[in-house]
Amino acid sequence: MTNADKNRIKDKMFGYFGMACTFFGIFMLLIFLSDIVISGWQKVDFDFLSSFPSSRPKKAGIYPALIGTLWILGLTAIIALPIGIAAGVYFEEYAKKSKMANFLEINLANLAGVPSIIYGLLGLQIFVRTLNFGTSILSGACTLALLILPIIIVSTREALKAVPDSIRQASYGMGANTWQTIWHQVLPASSGGIITGIILAISRAIGETAPLIVIGAATYITYIPEDAMSNFTVLPMQIYDWVGMPETPDGDYKTISSAGIIVLLMITFLLNGIAVFLRNRWQKKVKW
């Protein structure tokens, strides 16, 4: 066998290896999803969605967790969106090439890499204790809002970056000032990308568990939150609680954890699906 033959064979082998690696992760995900669906599917019904948690797994449901998740989702979005988009606009359209901008940049890069549990410690000290919000939905939402802020800022900037300068210059040429240009031209032109980033950030917030545990959110809640100052639990925390439970003769915690995971994954996948769909549509429609 000549060297050239050997090289060809190595090349082919690596191709197959690469394909195998690519499918490995997806394959694992499939195994895992099927395992969850098999053990939890029959449990996902109206009773499960509308019941309170119970010490008896057969009767337990995720009603408060689901409502808590919706509360957290809504409130986090209300807090994080305006701040995140505004900060993104500032970074991209105003703060260019100054020392201040450079500093903000480094800071942002670092924040994006801070582990989520650290945000929990921040929330615990600032929102729960110093501002005295207690272990409320508001504390949780503020904490998660800070957590997803860097994600929203980065994706907003990317969407703004994709808007060609010619649009800005055309607007300036008609006598518009910077803010008018941004508000009337740049933001509408980049809305698709911004919305995609927001949805991805929100779906990230929905799956977060650690920071909420740290701020002291409960895992066992037997009432529905009434306002932003109520105690709360969310789906991933409910799942975490069940995962840690020992087997009981009175039914299986694996079944209800799986059922809870099915609901959580449906929400995350739905949001991610929407985001991918919007992104593809936006990329196709807008060809500068």
Partner: peptide
């Protein structure tokens, strides 16, 4: 087609991965 599928892996909440590790 494959890239969005890989992204799904990153979008699964981590508590769910924990469950997978523990029970499977």
């Amino acid at each position: 087609y494959i890239k969005p599928m890989l992204e799904i892996l990153a979008s699964v909440p981590t508590v769910v991965y924990g469950f997978f590790a523990l029970t499977v």
